[in-house]
Nucleic acid binder design. Structure first.
Lengths: 248, 248
DNA sequence: TCGGATAGGCGCCCA
DNA sequence: TGGGCGCTTATCCGA
């Protein structure tokens, strides 16, 4: 575990090499320039950033605002330190990134251990399962299978109405757009053709749908069923109260 | 600028409060637990992580591997420190995240300043522009407009063949899949209807296309034209020149 | 704000 | 490995 403020260039190099060798997680607050070439080409001029290097060799560069990194390299890249100019170069078969450090404000590293995995509820798959287990949510629906395979994609929930006509349900955890309707349409057409059925009902199950998607849905005689994903927390009284407490 | 190894809980709290007040960028290597509730619900048990807090109040939690954060809160959230148990809670109108710190390995913060914005070449828009400026890439094509508007979406490049029939081009910077073909299909159908044209040619312009997308393309009598996005792994000098051009 | 679409998207799962 | 697709996607841009 190490943390150094304003290390000299030599010192920084030694620290970085040691931390990489020990596969520590590394955080560098610095002024730097970044160059990327591979799936696109980019250049980022001088500025202060946070550079994160993980034991798996993931490199992530964050500017002081925003949720997403401005530059990065995926895991398994090869990291090389350039002797003279205080650069690191991360390379994999299809791309590379160079970081040129002008000044290191803070260097810190630590041998982080983490065996935990995120437990999460509220995904589209959870939604599909909820519908499968509670077909009444859809109405006249007898579920048959989940994750039905088509060469044109996976059908979320598959079943029949009480007249034995096929029903295909596409779930969206938030708001269904044109792409969702197109997806559904692809499945419906594929199934109609493969199983030689005349009547196949397409249903979008989502908490919301965009205006245009609704229009397209109607053009194609599909249906929209408003369903909230399980555990989806809508802005509610409790949260509002909590917020008000903090707005002081 | 500050960096502290293994701060006591009280010390950590004081440091964090000061850094937040000064709107520094903050890095915390720690053992923690994370709870999230909002667009989904999640829990992450004890483990070592890197917590990044930016001046815009973005909070990002990274495990020691992988490119993506395991938990996060977008900018503009309200951050609160809980007195007794060494937690921070980040709240916005629709979600909140709690981080409970069991131990802080390293705390560091620094007033990072960064005015630079990423200059990048090789986007889909760059591709569309390239085609618009060099219609021969497509063949028999007279470009008419870029970013043509439909209620059902934006057409990348729009034009005509030598017989004055309409051509719609959908660009993809990497590999075109089923969704790309569906997108194209949506535009073609819309234009056919709106302009009462019989013949509208749909073209996918991309470096690659998936096998299934190719099949669907053929079903719909669309065409695939193999085109690389501009600046996709070109030599250094040229890149430098090109980047400079784009920066003007 | 809504709606549509891209992203160096990432990451997961399944054939 | 390729293909399809969800994601607390984020982010941008236009109406």
């Amino acid at each position: 575990m190490r943390s150094i403020i304003n290390p000299s260039k030599n010192r920084f190099k030694v620290l970085l090499e040691r931390s990489l060798r020990k596969t520590h997680s590394i955080n560098i607050m610095c002024n730097c320039e970044v160059e990327y070439k591979g799936r696109a080409v980019s250049h980022l001029k001088m500025g202060d950033r946070v550079v994160l290097i993980k034991p798996d060799k993931t490199v992530i560069v964050h500017q002081p605002s925003g949720r997403n990194p401005v530059n990065w390299m995926p895991a398994q890249a090869h990291i090389k330190l350039e002797e003279s100019t205080l650069k690191i170069e991360s390379v994999n078969p299809r791309e590379f990134m160079k970081i040129k450090f002008n000044h290191v404000h803070v260097f810190s590293s630590s041998p982080l251990k983490d065996a935990a995995t995120l437990k999460q509820v509220g995904s589209e798959a959870d939604m599909a399962k909820m519908i499968y287990d509670n077909p009444r949510l859809i109405g006249e629906f007898v579920p048959a299978s989940m994750e039905e395979q088509t060469t044109y994609g996976f059908i979320d929930v598959f079943g029949r109405d009480y007249n034995n006509n096929l029903i295909i349900i596409e779930c969206k955890r938030y708001k269904a757009g044109l792409d969702a309707v197109q997806q559904l349409r692809r499945y419906v057409e594929k199934i109609k053709k493969d199983k030689s059925k005349e009547i196949v009902t397409g249903i979008i199950a989502a908490p919301k749908i965009t205006s245009n998607a609704k229009k397209m849905l109607e053009d194609w005689n599909f249906k929209f069923v408003k369903i909230e994903p399980p555990m989806y927390l809508v802005p509610d009284k409790e949260l509002q109260k909590r917020l008000e407490e903090y707005e002081t």
